[in-house]
Design a protein around this nucleic acid. Structure first.
Lengths: 224, 224
DNA sequence: CCTACCGATCGGTAGG
DNA sequence: CCTACCGATCGGTAGG
């Protein structure tokens, strides 16, 4: 009886390839060479099997991409909700949201590269859904920034441009971060969080009175 | 019989395809679908000719990519040198460098998308050269930031992280900017320049007689 | 600029 | 998990 679902415990003790292993190999190759630049035969070779055997663990090459993208975007939104929780202070919300996003892009580089490069290769129902999710994420961040402006904590012209800049700056971490580099993922995330607060012109409230911005770009090293 | 060679300015009539036209069509398609996602036949179709005719104007598909990437990176370095000129003030140098880079990514979106997505598809002599050029650009920006820190104008922990953040933030403009959007390329470039100065913790010297006054890092929208 | 055509490789299926 | 094999398409060439 052929195992339809991934069952790691094969009868003869020889560990077969699982659906997750296929997904992981595809993720590595898609990230390195792009979706269209990766042949199904390369995924099979990475797993030490022949191409047709791959189809015992996946539906199609396209389905691999869809699964990777959807799974990743779900996790990003989960990250955001977990990070900001029920906090109300805009600065703290932005801090947590940025930190989680930056951290994710340092620790899930492959996923980030695939999502940001190969979305144009997605079939149509998925592509629209994916765009909506990215837009949702951008909007909640933008709303946090707008809240901060309203409360007088942030001083920036355009919440939209600020949210674009902050989010894309974090995304780009996936392009250069190395696990064996000079800085840990946490250190990078912390620094990028500072950058985010500077971009929105965060000035910690000294006390209750809303102080007028002095117009010189407020943040210096003191808010680190 | 269509003219083999024609004035590029008279674009209305049916003209013979030129090498530049092939490059431009390839640029559009590579940007939209990626290098491996674009078939040579699609480039030909975009120009209204058959695939084999394309080879009167190009050497190979790969050569198109190489030409696009090398040309673009040359222009980026030219941009930088032209923008900063012989200025010495770190803030002014960073301002000009950021503005030029941001502006380029708003006005040359296709080139930016191709360079940032399809570099892994470059053949080896070109790929290394291209990486070196990008690294050179990053280093000069990093040096500007380090200078600003030394002179006391900038206050930021890591010049390297700050330069990554600033450059990649500008690169990402190519992903969302629309010519018919709410802001002009110049407006976006100006805002991103402000973001860059905030990221490095720029505080204008109080006794400076620079023509810039304090509007540079100003978070208020009074001058916009 | 075209028609005719090439070998190679693509993603995927048949059938064990 | 395999061998055998499919039609489609790929980038590119021959030869006008």
């Amino acid at each position: 009886m052929p195992p339809v679902r991934a069952d790691p415990g094969s009868a003869d003790g020889r560990l077969g390839v699982t659906a997750d292993a296929v997904l992981d190999a595809a993720l590595t190759l898609f990230a390195a060479r792009g979706y269209h630049g990766t042949a199904v035969s390369q995924i099979a070779a990475a797993l030490g099997i022949r191409t047709p055997s791959l189809y015992n663990h996946m539906r199609s090459k396209q389905d691999l991409l869809e699964t990777i993208v959807e799974r990743t975007l779900d996790e990003v939104l989960d990250d955001f909700r977990t990070a900001v929780g029920d906090l109300t202070d805009p600065a703290e919300r932005l801090r947590r949201a940025t930190r989680a996003y930056a951290l994710r892009h340092a620790t899930h580089r492959r996923e980030a590269l695939v999502v940001n490069r190969d979305t144009t290769s997605l079939p149509e129902p998925t592509m629209t859904r994916m765009r909506e999710r990215r837009r949702d994420h951008e909007r909640v961040v933008r709303a946090v920034i707008a809240d901060g402006i309203d409360s007088g904590a942030f001083h920036v012209d355009s919440p939209a441009l600020a949210s674009f800049a902050i989010l894309e700056m974090c995304v780009s971490i996936a392009r250069w971060f190395r696990e064996d580099g000079a800085r840990s993922a946490e250190q990078v995330a912390d620094e990028y969080t500072d950058f985010a607060l500077r971009i929105v012109g965060f000035v910690p409230a000294p006390d209750s009175t809303d102080r007028q911005a002095d117009g010189t770009g407020g943040p210096d090293g003191s808010d680190r």
